[in-house]
Design a protein around this nucleic acid. Structure first.
Lengths: 274, 274
DNA sequence: CGTTGAATGGAATTTTTATTCCATTTATTT
DNA sequence: AAATAAATGGAATAAAAATTCCATTCAACG
């Protein structure tokens, strides 16, 4: 009994709800009232749970779903789950589709990276922990010297941080591994290390981080997943999850976080100096 | 088979994940990796869906849940559904919250860079000339060796290109200025130079570009304004305009262009090789 | 006050989803 | 290289959930 006009977005859903909320039998209205106040529970509950919470029988809740235009509860829930998951498009699939369409053209590829960057940025904005960021800025703005380490795909981020600190006259040292010199002894008491690494985590970075922590220095980690080895050692973790396109990523979110961190440190230092 | 220590919060879950992520069989690790990047999907998916997305059988996913200390998938999902609460605020809302923290707060700064990055990416997508990009890919995919130069704020871009080419087994050389060696003679006939520079244009980059062109080598320029000195010399110009936040920029668009260029070259080379 | 049609509760049924089990493959150890 | 243990895939089974159906209740109207 699927109706022709099932809502496909939160807006449509709310609109529909308002539209039909007059002319509802008692029990169905109970459902509507409950849902209006607890819309977010739809995606993660069963009919039985929602029905109980609304004080009605499952069958009554069922009728509510149908009055709204869905074939049943499952279809309604599907809409909410998809809406929620939309932030994470499946890039592997999309890339396959793209190739199937014969479009491995440079422009199509660029569009993919632009899209991936956009999603990564949105995700950064919604996932960053303001407290951790604040803590990182605080500790870094008091460091006599900031050390930076990051290799392979993390190196562009490390070097950009180095550039930014340089431009703001903040004492900083980029451990870039030139000549395999490993200038560990440059890390003095009170110095803070910014360690950047992503899966597969580079051993040198992890080593330097634990060395610094062994000395009692604070380490700020820019890293990805919760399984990152930098988290285990008690570093201050700033996490970024970047969307891949094939085997590569655009680093948009990571660099944005890095440069925001650097500029915030610069601003904080000026304030401290006064 | 409920274990005594099933995680009851996201923190505990992540901690546990990090703890056991060494010493995991292959398939279980696949689950861990997928979940680490898509934690938010657990609440709204079925085992079958997650297993497919992680590329494993449902039974393998089941084992993963148990290794983490849950009796099964349902128990794990229950934890996530209970903690689901206010994950709903969307991008726009969240960005407002970040800004609301105060003008020069780290989060407000981050919000600005995220916004700037988004705008820059949009500009890039609409302003890039597909023909020029195609020409650049074409000429670079036939080069016996690709040289890369970029200093200061362009250096992260240059080094990321170096990383990408390295990963794809494409002969490339990053002219990074170490020891002021200036290995100009490494540029052989047929080689192509990617020169990256933005206002204020760094002299070394411009010099190397005109040197290469003097030899008859093609130069692909990643640069900004139409007045860039790299344009005057007849280089193939790919232009990006990046939105500034104060004196800095997030480089999102530039890096996206660079990585798309690199991957396109890699794909083209494979096609040529056949 | 009886008749009719809508609304309701609850149990029966169907469908979906989680979970277990076991034969087969893959690694490890001797 | 053989023996042993661990890991894996896939199908079988169990559990849970959605959906339907129908007997009963309630409300409206003549």
């Amino acid at each position: 009994m699927t109706q022709q006009n099932a809502p496909v977005s939160l807006e449509e859903f709310n609109h529909r709800l308002a539209e039909v909320s007059d002319s509802m039998p008692k029990r169905v209205r109970q459902c509507a009232d409950y849902i209006a106040h607890n819309t977010d529970r739809i995606a993660v509950s069963t009919v039985a749970e929602l029905a109980t919470a609304a004080g009605v029988q499952p069958s009554a809740f069922m009728r509510f779903c149908q009055i709204l235009g869905f074939s049943g509860f499952s279809e309604m829930q599907k809409m909410f789950r998809e809406n929620y998951a939309q932030k994470w498009p499946d890039y592997a699939t999309r890339l396959d589709n793209l190739k199937a369409a014969g479009a491995d053209s440079p422009t199509a590829l660029l569009a993919e990276f632009v899209e991936a960057g956009r999603v990564s940025l949105e995700n950064l904005a919604t996932s960053i922990d303001p407290d951790l960021l604040e803590q990182a800025v605080d500790v870094l703005s008091h460091a006599p010297m900031i050390h930076i380490v990051g290799f392979r795909r993390a190196f562009p981020v490390a070097s950009y941080l180095g550039y930014a600190f340089e431009k703001m006259d903040i004492p900083a040292m980029l451990h870039d591994g030139i000549g395999k010199l490993n200038p560990r002894n440059a890390i003095r008491p009170g110095d803070v290390l910014i360690a950047i690494t992503f899966a597969p985590y580079s051993q040198e970075t992890v080593d330097l981080a634990s060395y610094a922590q062994g000395l009692g220095n604070t380490v700020v980690a820019i890293t990805d997943t919760p399984t990152s080895p930098l988290r285990r050692t008690g570093a201050l973790p700033l996490s970024v999850s970047e969307v891949d396109v094939g085997a590569f990523r655009a680093l948009s979110a990571t660099l944005s976080l890095a440069i925001a961190l650097a500029v915030a440190i610069g601003a904080r230092r000026e304030r401290n100096a006064k």
